[in-house]
Design a binder for these strands. Structure first.
Lengths: 255, 255
DNA sequence: GGCCCGCATTGACCTGAATCAGGTTTCCCG
DNA sequence: CGGGAAACCTGATTCAGGTCAATGCGGGCC
Protein backbone atom coordinates (compact mmCIF):
# COMPACT_ATOMS: atom_id res chain seq x y z
CA UNK A 1 0.00 0.00 0.00
CA UNK A 2 3.04 2.19 -0.13
CA UNK A 3 4.41 4.20 -3.03
CA UNK A 4 1.45 5.73 -4.64
CA UNK A 5 2.52 9.04 -5.94
CA UNK A 6 5.83 8.21 -7.49
CA UNK A 7 6.40 11.59 -9.14
CA UNK A 8 9.40 13.60 -8.23
CA UNK A 9 8.56 16.88 -6.60
CA UNK A 10 10.53 19.57 -8.35
CA UNK A 11 13.15 21.65 -6.66
CA UNK A 12 11.07 24.77 -6.96
CA UNK A 13 7.97 23.37 -5.33
CA UNK A 14 7.59 22.23 -1.76
CA UNK A 15 10.51 19.88 -2.17
CA UNK A 16 11.09 17.44 0.64
CA UNK A 17 14.87 17.13 0.66
CA UNK A 18 15.83 13.49 0.58
CA UNK A 19 19.20 12.60 2.07
CA UNK A 20 21.84 10.99 -0.07
CA UNK A 21 20.97 7.38 -0.61
CA UNK A 22 23.52 5.13 -2.16
CA UNK A 23 21.05 2.43 -2.93
CA UNK A 24 19.02 4.93 -4.85
CA UNK A 25 21.87 5.02 -7.30
CA UNK A 26 22.28 1.32 -7.79
CA UNK A 27 19.50 0.83 -10.20
CA UNK A 28 19.86 -2.43 -11.92
CA UNK A 29 17.56 -4.33 -14.11
CA UNK A 30 18.37 -7.81 -15.17
CA UNK A 31 16.81 -8.63 -18.46
CA UNK A 32 18.74 -11.51 -19.83
CA UNK A 33 17.79 -14.96 -20.93
CA UNK A 34 19.09 -18.11 -19.33
CA UNK A 35 20.26 -19.41 -22.65
CA UNK A 36 22.17 -16.21 -23.14
CA UNK A 37 23.99 -16.96 -19.95
CA UNK A 38 25.07 -20.40 -21.06
CA UNK A 39 25.06 -20.76 -24.79
CA UNK A 40 27.04 -18.01 -26.42
CA UNK A 41 30.02 -18.26 -24.15
CA UNK A 42 30.80 -21.70 -25.43
CA UNK A 43 30.11 -23.79 -22.38
CA UNK A 44 30.86 -27.41 -23.08
CA UNK A 45 27.92 -29.72 -22.92
CA UNK A 46 29.22 -31.25 -19.72
CA UNK A 47 29.25 -27.86 -18.08
CA UNK A 48 25.85 -27.04 -19.46
CA UNK A 49 24.52 -30.17 -17.90
CA UNK A 50 26.09 -29.39 -14.58
CA UNK A 51 24.48 -26.00 -14.77
CA UNK A 52 21.12 -27.51 -15.49
CA UNK A 53 21.47 -29.83 -12.54
CA UNK A 54 21.65 -26.82 -10.29
CA UNK A 55 18.29 -25.55 -11.36
CA UNK A 56 15.44 -26.02 -8.92
CA UNK A 57 11.79 -25.42 -9.64
CA UNK A 58 9.75 -23.32 -7.33
CA UNK A 59 6.05 -23.18 -6.56
CA UNK A 60 3.78 -20.52 -8.02
CA UNK A 61 4.47 -16.90 -7.24
CA UNK A 62 1.37 -14.81 -6.64
CA UNK A 63 0.79 -11.31 -7.86
CA UNK A 64 2.45 -8.96 -5.43
CA UNK A 65 4.82 -11.58 -4.04
CA UNK A 66 8.42 -10.55 -3.77
CA UNK A 67 11.31 -12.68 -4.95
CA UNK A 68 13.66 -10.58 -2.89
CA UNK A 69 14.03 -7.14 -1.37
CA UNK A 70 16.83 -4.65 -1.04
CA UNK A 71 19.48 -5.99 1.30
CA UNK A 72 18.54 -9.65 1.05
CA UNK A 73 21.60 -11.88 0.65
CA UNK A 74 22.06 -13.28 -2.84
CA UNK A 75 20.96 -16.87 -2.44
CA UNK A 76 19.71 -17.75 -5.90
CA UNK A 77 19.27 -16.21 -9.29
CA UNK A 78 15.79 -16.53 -10.73
CA UNK A 79 14.87 -17.54 -14.23
CA UNK A 80 11.33 -16.49 -15.03
CA UNK A 81 9.22 -19.33 -16.39
CA UNK A 82 5.87 -17.59 -16.61
CA UNK A 83 4.44 -14.21 -15.66
CA UNK A 84 5.98 -10.79 -15.42
CA UNK A 85 8.11 -9.24 -12.75
CA UNK A 86 9.26 -5.75 -12.11
CA UNK A 87 12.26 -4.61 -10.14
CA UNK A 88 12.14 -1.35 -8.31
CA UNK A 89 13.68 0.76 -5.63
CA UNK A 90 12.07 2.76 -2.88
CA UNK A 91 13.92 6.00 -2.42
CA UNK A 92 14.46 7.56 0.96
CA UNK A 93 11.38 9.76 0.64
CA UNK A 94 9.08 6.85 -0.12
CA UNK A 95 8.92 7.37 -3.85
CA UNK A 96 9.18 4.33 -6.03
CA UNK A 97 11.51 3.98 -8.99
CA UNK A 98 10.85 1.18 -11.47
CA UNK A 99 14.10 -0.24 -12.81
CA UNK A 100 12.91 -2.83 -15.23
CA UNK A 101 10.48 -5.52 -16.23
CA UNK A 102 11.28 -9.18 -16.49
CA UNK A 103 9.64 -11.47 -18.98
CA UNK A 104 9.44 -15.23 -19.15
CA UNK A 105 12.83 -16.69 -20.03
CA UNK A 106 14.78 -13.89 -18.44
CA UNK A 107 17.10 -13.86 -15.48
CA UNK A 108 16.57 -11.85 -12.31
CA UNK A 109 19.03 -11.18 -9.55
CA UNK A 110 22.25 -10.24 -11.26
CA UNK A 111 22.06 -6.84 -9.66
CA UNK A 112 23.33 -8.52 -6.50
CA UNK A 113 26.41 -10.11 -7.98
CA UNK A 114 28.42 -7.75 -5.95
CA UNK A 115 28.37 -7.48 -2.94
CA UNK A 116 26.13 -10.55 -2.99
CA UNK A 117 23.25 -8.55 -1.61
CA UNK A 118 20.24 -7.51 -3.57
CA UNK A 119 20.22 -3.87 -4.54
CA UNK A 120 16.59 -3.69 -5.52
CA UNK A 121 13.21 -5.32 -4.96
CA UNK A 122 11.63 -7.77 -7.37
CA UNK A 123 7.89 -8.33 -7.35
CA UNK A 124 5.50 -10.40 -9.49
CA UNK A 125 3.10 -8.34 -11.58
CA UNK A 126 0.78 -11.31 -12.03
CA UNK A 127 0.70 -14.96 -11.11
CA UNK A 128 4.08 -16.31 -12.12
CA UNK A 129 6.53 -19.14 -11.73
CA UNK A 130 10.30 -19.24 -11.58
CA UNK A 131 13.32 -21.51 -11.49
CA UNK A 132 16.00 -21.01 -8.92
CA UNK A 133 19.72 -21.15 -9.65
CA UNK A 134 21.67 -21.45 -6.40
CA UNK A 135 24.37 -18.85 -6.55
CA UNK A 136 26.88 -20.86 -4.59
CA UNK A 137 26.80 -23.64 -7.13
CA UNK A 138 26.93 -21.15 -9.97
CA UNK A 139 29.89 -19.52 -8.36
CA UNK A 140 31.75 -22.81 -7.95
CA UNK A 141 31.03 -23.66 -11.51
CA UNK A 142 32.26 -20.22 -12.52
CA UNK A 143 35.62 -20.84 -10.97
CA UNK A 144 36.04 -23.96 -13.07
CA UNK A 145 34.56 -22.54 -16.24
CA UNK A 146 36.01 -19.15 -17.05
CA UNK A 147 33.43 -18.71 -19.76
CA UNK A 148 30.76 -18.45 -17.13
CA UNK A 149 32.55 -15.61 -15.41
CA UNK A 150 32.69 -13.85 -18.72
CA UNK A 151 29.02 -14.45 -19.26
CA UNK A 152 28.29 -12.75 -16.01
CA UNK A 153 30.42 -9.80 -16.94
CA UNK A 154 28.79 -9.71 -20.30
CA UNK A 155 25.35 -9.62 -18.79
CA UNK A 156 26.40 -6.92 -16.37
CA UNK A 157 27.81 -4.93 -19.22
CA UNK A 158 24.53 -5.39 -21.04
CA UNK A 159 22.72 -4.05 -18.00
CA UNK A 160 24.97 -1.08 -18.17
CA UNK A 161 24.08 -0.60 -21.80
CA UNK A 162 20.39 -0.84 -21.08
CA UNK A 163 20.58 1.59 -18.22
CA UNK A 164 22.38 4.04 -20.44
CA UNK A 165 19.66 3.89 -23.00
CA UNK A 166 17.32 5.32 -20.40
CA UNK A 167 19.74 8.09 -19.60
CA UNK A 168 19.69 9.85 -22.94
CA UNK A 169 17.40 12.78 -23.57
CA UNK A 170 14.79 11.02 -25.60
CA UNK A 171 11.35 12.39 -26.31
CA UNK A 172 8.25 10.83 -24.83
CA UNK A 173 7.39 9.24 -28.17
CA UNK A 174 10.82 7.75 -28.58
CA UNK A 175 10.66 6.33 -25.10
CA UNK A 176 7.25 4.76 -25.49
CA UNK A 177 7.96 3.40 -28.95
CA UNK A 178 11.24 1.98 -27.75
CA UNK A 179 9.55 0.42 -24.77
CA UNK A 180 6.97 -1.30 -26.93
CA UNK A 181 9.59 -2.51 -29.37
CA UNK A 182 11.74 -3.82 -26.57
CA UNK A 183 8.85 -5.83 -25.19
CA UNK A 184 7.99 -6.97 -28.67
CA UNK A 185 11.44 -8.22 -29.52
CA UNK A 186 11.82 -9.90 -26.17
CA UNK A 187 8.49 -11.67 -26.57
CA UNK A 188 9.42 -12.68 -30.08
CA UNK A 189 12.71 -14.10 -28.85
CA UNK A 190 10.68 -16.37 -26.58
CA UNK A 191 8.51 -17.54 -29.42
CA UNK A 192 5.53 -15.28 -28.84
CA UNK A 193 3.83 -12.95 -31.27
CA UNK A 194 5.81 -9.81 -31.85
CA UNK A 195 2.80 -7.72 -32.70
CA UNK A 196 0.34 -8.61 -29.99
CA UNK A 197 1.36 -7.63 -26.50
CA UNK A 198 -0.45 -7.99 -23.23
CA UNK A 199 1.01 -5.47 -20.87
CA UNK A 200 1.19 -6.87 -17.40
CA UNK A 201 2.18 -3.54 -15.91
CA UNK A 202 0.08 -0.48 -15.24
CA UNK A 203 0.48 2.82 -17.04
CA UNK A 204 1.99 4.18 -13.91
CA UNK A 205 4.70 1.52 -13.88
CA UNK A 206 5.45 2.20 -17.52
CA UNK A 207 5.58 5.93 -16.94
CA UNK A 208 7.75 5.55 -13.90
CA UNK A 209 10.11 3.25 -15.76
CA UNK A 210 10.35 5.65 -18.70
CA UNK A 211 10.54 8.66 -16.42
CA UNK A 212 7.41 10.24 -17.82
CA UNK A 213 4.07 11.22 -16.33
CA UNK A 214 1.32 8.63 -16.60
CA UNK A 215 -0.72 11.17 -18.49
CA UNK A 216 2.03 11.51 -21.03
CA UNK A 217 2.19 7.77 -21.60
CA UNK A 218 -1.56 7.77 -22.07
CA UNK A 219 -1.38 10.62 -24.53
CA UNK A 220 1.40 9.02 -26.54
CA UNK A 221 -0.59 5.80 -26.74
CA UNK A 222 -3.55 7.77 -28.03
CA UNK A 223 -1.45 9.63 -30.54
CA UNK A 224 0.10 6.40 -31.79
CA UNK A 225 -3.35 4.93 -32.14
CA UNK A 226 -4.59 7.93 -34.11
CA UNK A 227 -1.60 7.61 -36.41
CA UNK A 228 -2.37 3.95 -36.94
CA UNK A 229 0.84 2.73 -35.35
CA UNK A 230 -0.86 0.67 -32.70
CA UNK A 231 -4.25 -0.40 -31.43
CA UNK A 232 -4.73 -0.13 -27.72
CA UNK A 233 -7.46 -1.64 -25.63
CA UNK A 234 -6.64 -1.27 -21.99
CA UNK A 235 -3.61 -3.51 -21.58
CA UNK A 236 -3.91 -5.27 -24.90
CA UNK A 237 -1.66 -3.63 -27.46
CA UNK A 238 -1.41 -4.46 -31.15
CA UNK A 239 1.64 -3.14 -32.97
CA UNK A 240 0.37 -2.26 -36.43
CA UNK A 241 3.40 -0.58 -37.96
CA UNK A 242 6.64 -1.98 -36.64
CA UNK A 243 8.54 -0.12 -39.32
CA UNK A 244 7.42 3.33 -38.24
CA UNK A 245 7.66 2.46 -34.57
CA UNK A 246 11.23 1.43 -35.23
CA UNK A 247 11.98 4.75 -36.85
CA UNK A 248 10.68 6.53 -33.80
CA UNK A 249 12.01 4.36 -31.04
CA UNK A 250 15.13 2.74 -32.42
CA UNK A 251 17.28 4.29 -29.71
CA UNK A 252 15.80 2.07 -27.05
CA UNK A 253 15.96 -1.25 -28.77
CA UNK A 254 18.61 -3.30 -27.08
CA UNK A 255 18.98 -6.84 -28.42
CA UNK B 1 36.94 19.16 -36.28
CA UNK B 2 34.04 16.78 -35.99
CA UNK B 3 31.08 16.91 -33.63
CA UNK B 4 30.28 20.51 -33.35
CA UNK B 5 26.63 20.70 -32.77
CA UNK B 6 25.96 17.85 -30.43
CA UNK B 7 22.35 18.70 -29.75
CA UNK B 8 19.67 16.19 -30.38
CA UNK B 9 17.25 17.21 -33.10
CA UNK B 10 13.76 16.61 -31.84
CA UNK B 11 11.38 14.16 -33.38
CA UNK B 12 9.02 16.83 -34.58
CA UNK B 13 11.63 18.85 -36.39
CA UNK B 14 13.59 17.82 -39.43
CA UNK B 15 14.87 14.80 -37.60
CA UNK B 16 17.60 12.88 -39.37
CA UNK B 17 16.75 9.30 -38.43
CA UNK B 18 19.84 7.60 -37.07
CA UNK B 19 19.97 3.83 -37.49
CA UNK B 20 20.12 1.56 -34.49
CA UNK B 21 23.55 1.67 -33.05
CA UNK B 22 24.45 -0.81 -30.37
CA UNK B 23 27.58 1.00 -29.36
CA UNK B 24 25.54 4.06 -28.77
CA UNK B 25 23.96 2.18 -25.92
CA UNK B 26 27.10 0.99 -24.27
CA UNK B 27 27.92 4.18 -22.53
CA UNK B 28 30.46 3.53 -19.90
CA UNK B 29 32.45 5.84 -17.78
CA UNK B 30 35.15 4.51 -15.54
CA UNK B 31 35.67 6.83 -12.63
CA UNK B 32 37.33 4.77 -9.97
CA UNK B 33 40.60 5.08 -8.13
CA UNK B 34 43.40 2.58 -8.37
CA UNK B 35 43.55 2.25 -4.62
CA UNK B 36 39.88 1.48 -4.65
CA UNK B 37 40.63 -1.37 -6.97
CA UNK B 38 43.20 -2.92 -4.67
CA UNK B 39 42.76 -1.81 -1.11
CA UNK B 40 39.21 -2.40 -0.03
CA UNK B 41 38.98 -5.92 -1.35
CA UNK B 42 41.62 -7.06 1.09
CA UNK B 43 44.40 -7.96 -1.29
CA UNK B 44 47.32 -9.36 0.62
CA UNK B 45 50.45 -7.29 0.51
CA UNK B 46 52.13 -9.86 -1.69
CA UNK B 47 49.36 -9.55 -4.24
CA UNK B 48 49.41 -5.79 -4.01
CA UNK B 49 53.08 -5.85 -4.79
CA UNK B 50 52.57 -8.12 -7.75
CA UNK B 51 49.95 -5.71 -8.98
CA UNK B 52 52.30 -2.81 -8.64
CA UNK B 53 54.94 -4.64 -10.58
CA UNK B 54 52.61 -4.74 -13.52
CA UNK B 55 52.31 -0.99 -13.68
CA UNK B 56 54.22 0.75 -16.42
CA UNK B 57 54.70 4.46 -16.75
CA UNK B 58 53.95 6.17 -20.00
CA UNK B 59 55.21 9.35 -21.60
CA UNK B 60 53.16 12.56 -21.53
CA UNK B 61 49.80 12.62 -23.21
CA UNK B 62 49.01 15.79 -25.09
CA UNK B 63 45.73 17.59 -25.15
CA UNK B 64 43.56 15.93 -27.73
CA UNK B 65 45.49 12.66 -27.69
CA UNK B 66 43.43 9.53 -27.45
CA UNK B 67 44.18 6.70 -25.06
CA UNK B 68 41.93 4.46 -27.08
CA UNK B 69 39.01 4.51 -29.44
CA UNK B 70 35.87 2.46 -29.88
CA UNK B 71 36.77 -1.01 -31.05
CA UNK B 72 40.37 -1.01 -29.92
CA UNK B 73 41.33 -4.24 -28.19
CA UNK B 74 41.70 -3.97 -24.43
CA UNK B 75 45.44 -3.98 -23.95
CA UNK B 76 45.89 -2.00 -20.77
CA UNK B 77 43.87 -0.17 -18.18
CA UNK B 78 44.98 3.37 -17.53
CA UNK B 79 45.43 5.03 -14.18
CA UNK B 80 45.45 8.79 -14.55
CA UNK B 81 48.44 10.44 -12.89
CA UNK B 82 47.89 14.01 -13.99
CA UNK B 83 45.48 15.89 -16.21
CA UNK B 84 41.88 15.27 -17.11
CA UNK B 85 40.33 12.89 -19.59
CA UNK B 86 36.91 12.52 -20.98
CA UNK B 87 35.31 9.45 -22.46
CA UNK B 88 32.77 9.82 -25.19
CA UNK B 89 30.91 8.13 -27.96
CA UNK B 90 30.21 9.28 -31.48
CA UNK B 91 26.72 8.26 -32.46
CA UNK B 92 25.83 7.15 -35.94
CA UNK B 93 24.75 10.63 -36.98
CA UNK B 94 28.02 12.22 -35.92
CA UNK B 95 26.77 13.62 -32.64
CA UNK B 96 29.03 13.28 -29.67
CA UNK B 97 27.93 11.95 -26.32
CA UNK B 98 30.16 12.60 -23.31
CA UNK B 99 30.11 9.67 -20.92
CA UNK B 100 32.31 10.85 -18.15
CA UNK B 101 35.36 12.72 -16.96
CA UNK B 102 38.41 11.13 -15.44
CA UNK B 103 40.50 12.82 -12.80
CA UNK B 104 43.98 12.10 -11.55
CA UNK B 105 44.00 8.89 -9.53
CA UNK B 106 41.15 7.33 -11.41
CA UNK B 107 41.02 4.31 -13.65
CA UNK B 108 40.07 4.34 -17.31
CA UNK B 109 39.26 1.41 -19.53
CA UNK B 110 36.97 -0.80 -17.50
CA UNK B 111 34.27 -0.24 -20.08
CA UNK B 112 36.10 -2.80 -22.19
CA UNK B 113 36.21 -5.58 -19.63
CA UNK B 114 33.87 -7.45 -21.81
CA UNK B 115 34.30 -8.25 -24.67
CA UNK B 116 37.85 -6.95 -24.22
CA UNK B 117 37.24 -4.24 -26.75
CA UNK B 118 36.83 -0.61 -25.90
CA UNK B 119 33.28 0.61 -26.11
CA UNK B 120 34.07 4.31 -26.06
CA UNK B 121 36.79 6.82 -26.84
CA UNK B 122 39.03 8.38 -24.22
CA UNK B 123 40.77 11.66 -24.90
CA UNK B 124 42.97 13.99 -22.85
CA UNK B 125 41.41 17.35 -22.07
CA UNK B 126 44.80 18.86 -21.30
CA UNK B 127 48.38 17.73 -21.04
CA UNK B 128 48.30 14.60 -18.95
CA UNK B 129 50.17 11.52 -17.88
CA UNK B 130 49.07 8.00 -17.15
CA UNK B 131 50.19 4.62 -15.86
CA UNK B 132 49.43 1.49 -17.81
CA UNK B 133 48.18 -1.73 -16.25
CA UNK B 134 48.54 -4.58 -18.74
CA UNK B 135 45.25 -6.35 -18.80
CA UNK B 136 46.71 -9.78 -19.43
CA UNK B 137 48.70 -9.62 -16.23
CA UNK B 138 45.76 -8.23 -14.36
CA UNK B 139 43.66 -11.05 -15.67
CA UNK B 140 46.15 -13.71 -14.62
CA UNK B 141 46.38 -12.16 -11.23
CA UNK B 142 42.61 -12.08 -11.06
CA UNK B 143 42.42 -15.82 -11.53
CA UNK B 144 44.66 -16.32 -8.52
CA UNK B 145 43.17 -13.61 -6.38
CA UNK B 146 39.39 -13.82 -6.31
CA UNK B 147 39.27 -10.50 -4.50
CA UNK B 148 40.49 -8.80 -7.63
CA UNK B 149 37.68 -10.26 -9.67
CA UNK B 150 35.29 -8.92 -7.12
CA UNK B 151 36.93 -5.54 -7.24
CA UNK B 152 36.33 -5.43 -10.94
CA UNK B 153 32.72 -6.37 -10.51
CA UNK B 154 32.41 -3.81 -7.80
CA UNK B 155 33.80 -1.10 -10.01
CA UNK B 156 31.52 -2.14 -12.83
CA UNK B 157 28.60 -2.07 -10.50
CA UNK B 158 29.67 1.39 -9.43
CA UNK B 159 29.71 2.45 -13.05
CA UNK B 160 26.22 1.19 -13.30
CA UNK B 161 25.25 3.22 -10.28
CA UNK B 162 26.81 6.35 -11.70
CA UNK B 163 25.16 5.92 -15.04
CA UNK B 164 21.84 5.55 -13.29
CA UNK B 165 22.28 8.78 -11.48
CA UNK B 166 22.23 10.52 -14.85
CA UNK B 167 19.05 8.74 -15.83
CA UNK B 168 16.72 10.29 -13.29
CA UNK B 169 14.66 13.33 -14.18
CA UNK B 170 16.69 15.93 -12.40
CA UNK B 171 16.41 19.64 -12.96
CA UNK B 172 19.21 21.62 -14.54
CA UNK B 173 20.20 23.02 -11.17
CA UNK B 174 20.35 19.62 -9.54
CA UNK B 175 22.48 18.32 -12.37
CA UNK B 176 24.95 21.17 -12.29
CA UNK B 177 25.18 21.23 -8.51
CA UNK B 178 25.66 17.48 -8.44
CA UNK B 179 28.32 17.71 -11.09
CA UNK B 180 30.28 20.30 -9.15
CA UNK B 181 29.97 18.34 -5.93
CA UNK B 182 31.08 15.16 -7.62
CA UNK B 183 34.19 16.88 -8.94
CA UNK B 184 34.76 18.45 -5.56
CA UNK B 185 34.56 15.22 -3.61
CA UNK B 186 36.72 13.41 -6.11
CA UNK B 187 39.35 16.13 -5.96
CA UNK B 188 39.20 16.10 -2.19
CA UNK B 189 39.69 12.33 -2.18
CA UNK B 190 42.95 12.92 -4.05
CA UNK B 191 44.11 15.48 -1.53
CA UNK B 192 43.12 18.62 -3.43
CA UNK B 193 41.02 21.51 -2.26
CA UNK B 194 37.35 20.67 -2.25
CA UNK B 195 36.24 24.25 -2.75
CA UNK B 196 38.49 25.44 -5.54
CA UNK B 197 38.03 23.69 -8.85
CA UNK B 198 39.70 24.25 -12.16
CA UNK B 199 37.43 22.83 -14.80
CA UNK B 200 39.41 21.23 -17.56
CA UNK B 201 36.37 20.73 -19.70
CA UNK B 202 34.40 23.23 -21.74
CA UNK B 203 30.85 24.27 -20.99
CA UNK B 204 29.82 22.27 -23.99
CA UNK B 205 31.34 19.09 -22.59
CA UNK B 206 29.66 19.69 -19.26
CA UNK B 207 26.34 20.35 -20.92
CA UNK B 208 26.65 17.32 -23.13
CA UNK B 209 27.55 15.14 -20.17
CA UNK B 210 24.63 16.44 -18.12
CA UNK B 211 22.31 16.33 -21.11
CA UNK B 212 21.58 20.03 -21.02
CA UNK B 213 22.10 22.87 -23.46
CA UNK B 214 25.32 24.81 -23.07
CA UNK B 215 23.24 27.92 -22.56
CA UNK B 216 21.47 26.27 -19.67
CA UNK B 217 24.73 25.38 -17.97
CA UNK B 218 25.87 28.94 -18.38
CA UNK B 219 22.67 30.27 -16.93
CA UNK B 220 22.76 27.95 -13.95
CA UNK B 221 26.33 29.00 -13.23
CA UNK B 222 25.22 32.62 -13.29
CA UNK B 223 22.25 31.93 -11.08
CA UNK B 224 24.40 30.06 -8.58
CA UNK B 225 26.83 32.96 -8.56
CA UNK B 226 24.06 35.47 -7.95
CA UNK B 227 22.84 33.37 -5.06
CA UNK B 228 26.31 33.29 -3.59
CA UNK B 229 26.71 29.55 -3.98
CA UNK B 230 29.79 29.75 -6.17
CA UNK B 231 32.16 32.20 -7.77
CA UNK B 232 32.92 31.56 -11.38
CA UNK B 233 35.66 33.03 -13.47
CA UNK B 234 35.84 31.22 -16.75
CA UNK B 235 37.01 27.76 -15.77
CA UNK B 236 37.97 28.62 -12.23
CA UNK B 237 35.16 27.76 -9.86
CA UNK B 238 35.02 28.46 -6.14
CA UNK B 239 32.38 26.56 -4.19
CA UNK B 240 31.20 29.03 -1.55
CA UNK B 241 28.33 27.15 0.03
CA UNK B 242 28.82 23.40 -0.04
CA UNK B 243 25.89 22.98 2.30
CA UNK B 244 23.36 24.55 -0.01
CA UNK B 245 24.89 23.00 -3.08
CA UNK B 246 24.49 19.66 -1.36
CA UNK B 247 20.84 20.34 -0.73
CA UNK B 248 20.32 21.05 -4.37
CA UNK B 249 22.51 18.42 -5.93
CA UNK B 250 22.57 15.58 -3.47
CA UNK B 251 21.09 13.13 -5.96
CA UNK B 252 24.24 13.11 -8.05
CA UNK B 253 26.83 12.66 -5.41
CA UNK B 254 28.29 9.21 -5.78
CA UNK B 255 31.13 8.37 -3.35
C1' DG C 1 -27.60 -4.83 -8.11
C1' DG C 2 -25.15 -0.75 -6.62
C1' DC C 3 -21.25 1.23 -4.39
C1' DC C 4 -16.54 2.32 -4.34
C1' DC C 5 -11.84 2.46 -5.54
C1' DG C 6 -8.13 2.49 -8.51
C1' DC C 7 -6.85 2.76 -13.31
C1' DA C 8 -7.00 5.19 -17.60
C1' DT C 9 -8.05 8.96 -20.66
C1' DT C 10 -8.65 13.76 -21.97
C1' DG C 11 -8.49 18.81 -21.78
C1' DA C 12 -6.69 23.34 -19.97
C1' DC C 13 -2.92 25.38 -18.29
C1' DC C 14 1.91 26.22 -16.64
C1' DT C 15 6.79 25.89 -16.54
C1' DG C 16 11.61 24.58 -17.29
C1' DA C 17 14.68 24.10 -20.55
C1' DA C 18 15.73 24.12 -25.61
C1' DT C 19 16.17 27.08 -29.37
C1' DC C 20 17.25 31.24 -31.68
C1' DA C 21 19.71 35.37 -31.91
C1' DG C 22 22.43 38.33 -30.54
C1' DG C 23 26.75 40.03 -27.86
C1' DT C 24 31.61 40.00 -25.47
C1' DT C 25 35.96 37.97 -24.34
C1' DT C 26 39.83 35.04 -25.14
C1' DC C 27 43.13 32.97 -27.70
C1' DC C 28 45.39 31.29 -31.78
C1' DC C 29 47.84 32.08 -35.95
C1' DG C 30 49.23 34.43 -39.96
C1' DC D 1 49.39 43.53 -34.54
C1' DG D 2 44.80 42.23 -36.47
C1' DG D 3 41.47 38.92 -38.07
C1' DG D 4 38.80 35.01 -37.03
C1' DA D 5 37.14 31.27 -34.64
C1' DA D 6 35.97 29.32 -30.31
C1' DA D 7 34.13 29.81 -25.86
C1' DC D 8 31.08 31.95 -22.99
C1' DC D 9 27.20 34.77 -21.51
C1' DT D 10 22.48 36.90 -21.92
C1' DG D 11 17.78 37.91 -23.48
C1' DA D 12 13.45 36.68 -26.16
C1' DT D 13 10.67 33.10 -27.78
C1' DT D 14 8.94 28.41 -28.28
C1' DC D 15 7.57 23.96 -27.02
C1' DA D 16 7.45 19.34 -24.80
C1' DG D 17 5.97 17.52 -21.07
C1' DG D 18 4.43 18.09 -16.24
C1' DT D 19 0.59 19.48 -13.27
C1' DC D 20 -4.18 20.03 -12.17
C1' DA D 21 -8.77 18.76 -12.67
C1' DA D 22 -12.73 16.39 -14.50
C1' DT D 23 -14.65 12.23 -16.34
C1' DG D 24 -15.16 7.44 -17.85
C1' DC D 25 -14.65 2.62 -17.03
C1' DG D 26 -14.03 -1.90 -15.06
C1' DG D 27 -13.77 -5.02 -11.18
C1' DG D 28 -14.28 -6.40 -6.46
C1' DC D 29 -17.27 -6.60 -2.58
C1' DC D 30 -21.13 -6.00 0.58
Amino acid sequence: MLFFEARRTRLSGTATPSPLNLYQLRRTCSTCSLSELCLPMGLESGDMQRLEELVALRGPVNEGDHLFRVGDPLRVLYAVRGGFFKSYLVEANGREQVLGFHLPGELIGLDAIWPEQHQCNAVALNTASVCELPYAGLSDLGRQVPGLQHSMLRLLSKELALSHSLAGDYSAEERVAGFLLSLSSRMKARGHSETHLTLAMSRRDIANYLRLATETVSRVFSRFEQDGLVSVDRREVMLRDLEKLGQIGRCFTVG
